[in-house]
């Protein structure tokens, strides 16, 4: 099966509850993983200021996915993104065509490190009011460490991490209120 390397960024409204956010994240991650794709990285870039207001919102919550998938998967992904009312923007870019998934997976961490460094990402901890996002960065690091050891469990680890993060995020959000 020919698979291509893609990245998708989607932006959700900043004011939605974290369980709703988690639901969207899980749904989209599930689509990638269950339809012949392989998710290398899922990153929470946190809340950022939008360069212009979108549906009255001045901020957006950015999520980034790096994956390999057959060409019809992004279509399905975008169809689902269109169904989400609180998802205000998305972009999918094909990074490389007909890739060897193992090779890309091997380089995914380095690519992430480079990306974080070059774009000055703080994987979520973008603004001061993002208490729950600090966990994301730490969790991501944990995932990385374990990854070296068990290569095949990569995506599963990431998924677990995200799940717990969603729960923690919910707890924190309540605290903030």
């Amino acid at each position: 099966m020919i698979r291509h390397e893609y990245e998708t960024i989607y932006v959700t409204r900043p004011d939605i509850e974290s369980d709703k956010q988690a639901r969207i994240d899980d749904k989209l991650k599930g689509i990638v993983e269950n339809k012949g794709g392989e998710l290398f990285m899922f990153e929470q870039w946190g809340k950022r200021k939008l360069a212009y207001p979108i549906r009255r919102s001045l901020q957006g919550s950015y999520q980034y996915m790096h994956y390999a998938a057959p060409a019809d998967l992004p279509v399905e992904l975008e169809r689902n993104m269109n169904l989400e009312d609180s998802l205000i923007r998305y972009i999918t870019v094909r990074l490389n065509e007909n890739v060897d998934v193992d090779v890309v997976r091997a380089g995914a961490e380095a690519a992430q490190a480079e990306r974080v460094q070059r774009l000055g990402l703080s994987l979520g901890a973008e603004s001061a009011d993002e208490g729950d996002q600090d966990d994301v960065t730490e969790d991501a690091k944990d995932t990385k460490d374990t990854k070296d050891a068990k290569d095949t469990k990569d995506t599963k680890d990431t998924k677990d991490t995200k799940d717990t993060k969603g729960a923690e995020g919910a707890g924190k959000a309540k605290k903030e209120d």
């Binding site: 932006v11 939008l50 360069a51 212009y52 979108i54 957006g60 923007r89 998305y90 972009i91 870019v93």
Partner: peptide, 11 residues
């Protein structure tokens, strides 16, 4: 143009 679409840059 891509940057504008995801609101990293202004139109």
């Amino acid at each position: 143009k891509r940057g504008r679409h995801i609101a990293f840059l202004p139109f």
